[in-house]
């Protein structure tokens, strides 16, 4: 039992006892030892379900959208990426800061679930790919803080410039090779929308892919419609993606969704200046404002 788990249970118990929030959102142990799905705790006696381990991948900020129209206050645990998602949701005016109690947890990087499954409990499980490049392991916004954050700040500070080598590898291909690559990836898509459901950037009240209006979106599961889905979703999360990599983890078909999102992040940085989503609540959104000096390619 690690120290942070104990602290989590204690603080969650206190919050529920005092009635500061009616529900605490954290992680609990799932069906397997390498799964830690979200837990919604609303009774003091349930706080012992909460855990913090190497597999607490879910971005909990996403679930705040479910409480948007409720009066009650919610307490959630946030890692670095969760806190970025929280900031981004604030910017989208999806939630109110006053209605949420944030309990920050410094995150040393989580472990890969798929590898854990094959290597077993005793194996040396590598870090999840999304965590290798993490620039913000510490929560950026919080009301309470569990654990020590200094050492992680140092780790983050020594990180090099973002690595886009995987995106560049695809850019280097010819158009036909690229098309073949993406067709192969998205032909596997079963349109379960797990990527959308788990993504904190996907916070529309009614998603375009749930529309029943004819003409907006084809329901057929074929190559063309799958690519339509992929590109539309990529454009919708453009400027919102906080690189938590949840879409890719949730994808049952192992489609490299982050390759699309990273491409857009790379382009935003190149075209409109350095921008990391969800760092500063007062920052301007890359697709929500413009600059007269933006690159001009359409003359």
């Amino acid at each position: 039992m690690n120290e942070i788990t104990n602290k989590m249970r204690k603080i969650a118990g206190e919050i529920l006892q005092k009635g500061e929030a009616s529900v605490v959102i954290g992680w609990e142990k799932g069906t397997f030892w390498y799964l830690s799905p979200p837990a919604f705790i609303d009774k003091v006696e349930d706080v012992d379900r909460l855990v913090w381990d190497d597999f607490c991948h879910n971005n909990l900020s996403k679930y705040l959208v479910d409480f948007k129209y409720k009066e009650e206050k919610v307490a959630i645990f946030v890692k670095g990426c969760d806190s970025r998602a929280f900031n981004r949701l604030l910017q989208d005016k999806q939630i109110e800061r006053e209605k949420v109690i944030l309990i920050g947890i410094p995150c040393p990087g989580l472990k890969d679930q798929d590898q854990a499954k094959t290597l077993g409990k005793e194996g040396d499980i590598p870090k999840a790919e999304k965590c290798l490049e993490c620039k913000y392991p510490n929560p950026l916004v919080y009301d309470y803080y569990l654990g020590e954050k200094e050492e992680l700040d140092e780790v983050a500070a020594t990180k090099e410039a973002p690595n886009y080598s995987d995106v560049e590898a695809i850019e280097a291909m010819s158009p036909d090779e690229r098309y073949e690559f993406w067709t192969k990836q998205y032909d596997r898509c079963i349109r379960c929308y797990a990527c959308r459901n788990v993504c904190p950037a996907c916070n529309c009240r009614e998603c375009v892919f749930d529309q029943t209006c004819v003409g907006w979106i084809g329901k057929a599961n074929n190559s063309s419609e799958n690519q339509f889905f992929a590109l539309t979703r990529a454009m919708h999360v453009a400027g919102r993606c906080i690189e938590c990599g949840e879409c890719e983890r949730a994808c049952p078909m192992d489609i490299p969704i982050m390759l699309l999102n990273k491409k857009i992040i790379k382009d935003i940085n190149e075209l409109f200046g350095e921008y990391d989503a969800g760092i500063d609540v007062d920052s301007k959104l890359p697709l929500g404002h413009f600059d007269k000096s933006d690159p001009e390619e359409f003359m």
Partner: peptide, 16 residues
């Protein structure tokens, strides 16, 4: 302009 600068690059990225 902002939207289509991105969109153009994204379309090229997927092979259009």
């Amino acid at each position: 302009r902002r939207r289509y600068l991105l969109m153009q690059r994204l379309l090229q990225y997927v092979g259009i």
